[in-house]
Write a protein that binds this DNA or RNA. Structure first.
Lengths: 200, 200
DNA sequence: AACCTATCTTGACAGTGTCAAAATTGCATG
DNA sequence: CATGCAATTTTGACACTGTCAAGATAGGTT
């Protein structure tokens, strides 16, 4: 038994790596995160990180997973507020996009091709994402009952399409296709109208 | 004056490079396209491509630009068909997603972060994209007049949000987040309902 | 025939991810 | 307390990447 599992040489390399990596991608983008530079900034040799993460892919998966937990926390705190169902939904949509834009690099890892297509999403990442999605679908079902989202299809379908819409909006900004963030709130408002109108 | 500008050693390297690159990304993804391997498959030395494209970035920009022209062609041929406005729109939505999924790697270059955020979109790429977008907005205006798309906002806003929705749907599949393409057509149908319902 | 210039090649450099083997170090046991 | 074990870190190495600089080649023009 040990009191602190990773107090050997560095302190807590795993944690340090994640924090440093998170900072680097936030400030310089995922593509300029290299295992070697990361090791260097943490003050450790090139290959040390490989004893804490199998891969660069594994490191990125861990970052993405953190993102899902953060996002879930946000969702829960929003649902805890006493809002009308409609207000709650609107606030969530705004919050979703705010999160996406503010943590754009993490968002990209969570929902981008880096991990899901080009990479190899870890089992725990898949689990985290699935859980988030399930929570969303459950809420969609409620919102349908409350006549806020359209009921012309199953919760799954409505959940998929509305999520896709938010996701698409997020990506346009995140990926640098749209740059005037001034238009954003207007676009979000219009998107909400699009999503809700079918239930009116 | 020369009859064939690039008949020197290879034939038409520029064209060969684009074709080969297009094939490689289609079959193996953008991330496994390397300038060196590309040069090799075309049968030319490592740095030969650099006399035809300043950069890897420039090569990718050219590929993306081609994509925009293809997509524009598709749009025009669809508008040439004699459809009701509504049918025309529906067909376009389906066609848009079909194109995105079939040419997923090109689509990613056209609308992804590789060029627009991490990279450096060329002027002609920007122009092509802007033109495509403008054509879309013009059409949206028509569709609003024909009461197919909602009129509760400007053509620009409606164009932005509906495009974002389609884009988001496309990305979910392209990026490997959604894998059951069986659900696709259902999701597209629902998406169309979402987009159009506000005008009913 | 000579030259110019577009084209292509060879050599080189800095950077990447990551494997294998060696070195270090802290903890628990004899 | 010493010894050994296992977790941790390092050094060395390899194959790969993009791309610059300098030289070779060869087609068209004068």
């Amino acid at each position: 038994m040990s009191t602190l599992k990773t107090q050997y040489h560095h302190g807590d390399l795993t944690k340090s790596l994640l924090e440093s990596a998170s900072l680097i991608i936030k400030e310089q983008g995922v593509e300029s995160l290299s295992m070697r530079k990361l090791a260097d900034t943490v003050g450790v040799s090139r290959t040390a990180p490989y004893h804490h993460f199998k891969d660069k892919n594994a490191l990125l998966c861990a970052l993405a997973e953190q993102g899902f937990y953060e996002q879930a926390k946000m969702l829960h705190s929003l649902r805890a507020q006493k809002n009308t169902a409609e207000e709650g939904f609107k606030k969530y949509v705004h919050a979703y996009l705010e999160y996406a834009l503010q943590h754009n690099e993490t968002y990209d890892l969570m929902y981008g091709r880096t991990l899901w297509k080009a990479g190899n999403p870890s089992d725990s990442l898949k689990a985290a994402s699935k859980q988030t999605f399930k929570a969303w679908i459950d809420w969609v079902e409620e919102l349908q009952e409350q006549n806020i989202l359209p009921s012309n299809n199953t919760p799954l379908r409505i959940g998929q399409t509305t999520w896709a819409s938010l996701h698409g909006l997020a990506r346009l900004f995140i990926d640098g296709i749209y740059l005037d963030t001034e238009d954003l709130s207007d676009m979000v408002e219009q998107m909400i109208k699009n999503l809700c109108s079918a239930s009116a």
